[in-house]
Nucleic acid binder design. Structure first.
Lengths: 338, 338
DNA sequence: TGCTGGCACTCGCCTGCGGTGAGTGCCAAG
DNA sequence: CTTGGCACTCACCGCAGGCGAGTGCCAGCA
């Protein structure tokens, strides 16, 4: 177990390195922090910390930089989430409040988060699977062609074209629309399959095929998890990444383009509370030199989706975590209001 | 006026520089191209070309690189759009054909374009203003709350929440829905205002206020040009930009994040035919070291939106233009089919 | 046992220096 | 108008030396 002072030294190293982006040495440490001991002592502590794998030196006779393990310890034990100041909170609220629809909410959130953290922001659209149905609309576009429009309580709209085997009469369609809505409106997605199971039986034989087609399209839309969308922003902040650019930045940009990767990334995070994945803790190789801070957000008490930021492992964790948490809270509020 | 050979020299310079990314000298030119003259002659020609502002040297005693003006002459007079090969065309078609909805079409297009050109691709969603109405749906969510859903012939869906002053009866709403659709379905957006002008008169006095509210919401949705969305992809290709990275890439990333900037960028392009904006021809400062190749695409003969790529001024213009044109054509086809 | 000051050592970074070579401009001759 | 020749420029490369931040180790002291 590390002594109290050694933890203090580690904290100082992380803070200084995050600030200066340069390896930090024993002398500089004692000057900038009131550790109450001499550089020589600090050197001994550093040697111990290095032995344990919390810090490393890029080359002999240079200062130390924290390792992923060092950051991990810092985040778990040494850092407190930095709360936003009152003016910041007000600014967040004002900025989000002006949103006119869901796209706008997500767009504003991503811009806000990128600006606050000066990092790349990722915001997942409120997920379908946990929300409830507000309305299902069926439109006849051609005799044997129906458009299904699904409206959720989060304001999201999903549409889908359905080709029927046989012409679908306007009255039957209206009938189906009415029955469908009376059964599923206000219900959770997960409950829908059970609720519509016996619907075809209520129809004439000649319509049952079409009804089933429509219902299965509806169910597909509901479970289609890969339809989950997200928005990213603040990629320009990647330029502040480090000196040895092209090599570091390229895989990150590539990873960010793959929605699948990002969704998995956010999905891996714990459902409640904040998750911080540091460097190699990220499964995706391209993100091995980045840290991901993510958290769930939702309109009620429950999380319906996640958001987070991607930045260099060398990031201001307390500040970033504070910003992420605050933004998640306010987005939840905004969604609950609308 | 420049002599035939000098134009030939300029073409050779552009081609070599695009290939090697290094200033090209007189000797290398005569070796790689069959100009039929000696290096000394080429030197004279180069001096003349520099005098006219078509090429420049980064520093004394280095080779020449084309200026924006040089590239301009190259694309206007010296380069032919390189047609795609048959296998490439097949690949494009196959790749786009699997799309299941509009989002997917746009997503596939942007990925395809980025991959083909190895540059940043930008695809605008089919624009509302030029398309036609397929269906208007009105849903009563609460007594005095209506959701308007607008479906276009390009498969795009726009929704909007409307707060009414007074409760809007279900039957009146159904009436409005029916009348509205009979008037505007299949009509162009531009014609809608004229077509619905006298609609309120057909309703009872107590409903007129609500009808007007709904209609003005519809009209707003129609003209709301800033609702235009677009998708970008291939940002990882920015890493191939040049050596002096951070400075070049940052403003480009920033510009790409501003949808407004991009929409304006595409909007400036000619309606038909391909547009190439080179370096400082781009109004936005951040894109002064990039070229933008854009073209309209559409489901019928008419363009409904634009797409294009953003890359370094030092790009393979014939190849890029060929790819952009081919992709635009096939997207048009796909949209027409669906 | 743990902290401290001292000391020799390492090694990345900066600077200055000459050599090299690609590329240029100019000129006189064909 | 083209061409070969020639002197000149200047970015780039490699090398050596000095500087300095930072380290590890050790002996002395509380």
């Amino acid at each position: 177990m590390l002594s109290e002072r050694r933890l203090e030294v580690l904290r100082a190293i992380v803070q200084d390195y995050v600030g200066t982006e340069e390896p930090v040495g024993s002398k500089a440490l004692t000057e900038r922090h009131r550790l109450g001991v001499s550089p020589a002592t600090v050197r001994n502590d550093m040697a111990a910390l290095e032995e344990e794998g919390y810090i490393a030196q890029p080359h002999t006779s240079a200062g130390r930089i924290p390792t992923d393990k060092g950051y991990r310890l810092f985040v778990d034990k040494l850092a407190a989430v930095k709360p936003m100041t009152a003016p910041e909170r007000r600014a967040i609220h004002n900025f989000l409040e002006g949103a006119v629809d869901l796209d706008d909410v997500v767009g504003r959130t991503v811009r806000l988060l990128a600006q606050l953290t000066r990092q790349v922001a990722v915001v997942q659209y409120p997920s379908l699977t946990r929300s409830t149905v507000r309305h299902v609309e069926l439109l006849s576009l051609a005799p044997a062609r129906v458009m299904l429009v699904l409206i959720t309580d989060t304001g999201r709209v999903e549409q889908r074209m359905i080709d029927c085997h046989a012409p679908f009469g306007e009255t039957s369609l209206a009938d189906l629309r009415a029955r469908l809505n009376s059964r599923v409106a206000g219900r959770r997605f997960a409950d829908v399959p059970r609720l519509v199971e016996d619907l075809p039986e209520a129809f004439d034989v000649e319509d049952r095929g079409n009804v089933s087609t429509v219902l299965s399209a509806l169910l597909e839309t509901l479970v289609e998890e890969n339809e989950e969308r997200l928005m990213i922003g603040g990629t320009a902040n990647l330029t502040r990444f480090g000196h040895d650019f092209p090599l570091t930045i390229r895989p990150v940009l590539e990873a960010l383009e793959e929605q699948v990767v990002l969704l998995k990334l956010l999905g891996e995070a714990k459902d409640s509370g904040m998750t911080v994945r540091i460097g190699h803790e990220n499964a995706h190789e391209g993100l091995n030199s980045t840290s991901v801070v993510s958290v769930g957000y939702g309109s009620g008490g429950e999380a319906v989706a996640k958001l987070g930021v991607v930045g260099p492992t060398r990031m201001d964790y307390p500040g970033t975590m504070g910003a992420v948490r605050a933004v998640a809270r306010y987005v939840g509020q905004i969604l609950a209001e609308s």
